[in-house]
């Protein structure tokens, strides 16, 4: 947030740059024909800093992976509790879910960072800064709340007869859920999971609020340095996000067909 004020000032320069870009396009048609938008020199600036942005993209990917993983580890049991549990655990899980799903991610991140005050985590080889662990915790727990809904729906969608059939061959209730219901439910969860994956990926940009140097934050750093290149920088990082979400979606599509149950229900 603190960046916002100075960025506002920076923004005023960018449209002038666009206009002058049009002028210079007329003067140097060969140089600027390559870029539909913006000015060649500013695109050059973006490309010179591509390494810096790539580092941010790497952090974005890492943040996404860690948050999804945390979300799965917490969200799957939570979904199971909502379907098979009862009493206090079910109500606690349900209540936590409502709170996490009803609060903007930026507020969750700020609470993690400022209120809970996640400490620096030292792993020996590398240390995770408080901002990173707050980011993972915030995105991960919020994702867990959504993943629990996905798993709750798919677990509930598996026919009751499956559980009965499992019990009838002598499995305990837990075993029947574990070996009969869960494998079917997980496969059905892939479409919902796909959606959740891209949401987390895109929402990593909001850790900007706690100053974590992922892709969007680094982009903002860059265009604060060179205010004429605002549009170029943002379009470039948007393209990276788009490639990441697109690739993720296609990969999960593949996973979906790869593990689809033949003649499966078209849920």
């Amino acid at each position: 947030m603190s960046a916002a004020g100075s960025l506002a000032l920076a923004a005023s320069g960018s449209l002038g740059a666009l206009a002058s870009g049009a002028v210079s396009a007329a003067a140097h048609p060969a140089a600027s024909a390559v870029w539909l938008v913006g000015e060649g020199a500013d695109w050059g600036f973006v490309l010179r800093n591509a390494d810096y942005l790539a580092g941010g993209a790497l952090l974005t990917v890492g943040l996404t992976a860690a948050s999804i993983l945390l979300g799965f580890l917490v969200g799957f049991p939570a979904g199971a509790v909502e379907v098979y549990g009862g009493g206090l655990p079910k109500r606690l899980v349900g209540g936590a879910g409502v709170v996490l799903r009803g609060t903007p991610i930026v507020v969750i991140l700020l609470v993690m960072y400022f209120v809970i005050g996640v400490p620096q985590v030292n792993l020996g080889v590398a240390s995770i800064s408080p901002a990173v662990s707050a980011g993972i915790l915030g995105l991960g727990l919020r994702s867990a709340a959504y993943q629990s809904q996905i798993f709750r729906a798919t677990l509930a969608s598996v026919d009751d007869g499956q559980l009965e059939a499992g019990r009838s061959v002598g499995l305990s209730r837990f075993e029947a859920i574990r070996y009969v219901v869960v494998p079917q439910a997980l496969r059905r969860s892939i479409p919902g999971f796909q959606n959740e994956f891209t949401i987390v990926l895109k929402d990593t940009s909001i850790v900007f609020a706690i100053g974590l140097a992922e892709l969007l934050t680094r982009g903002a750093d860059l265009f604060t340095q060179r205010t004429t290149a605002v549009l170029e920088v943002i379009l470039f990082i948007s393209a990276i996000y788009f490639v990441l979400t697109f690739a993720t979606n296609r990969a999960l599509d593949y996973l979906g067909t790869r593990y689809a149950i033949p003649e499966g229900e078209s849920v």
Partner: peptide, 17 residues
């Protein structure tokens, strides 16, 4: 849907002013 909302807001506000 493939790009973050925040990046879109930045395009409109900072990028296109």
């Amino acid at each position: 849907r493939g790009t973050p909302l925040l990046a879109q807001l930045f395009v409109l506000y900072y990028g296109l002013n």
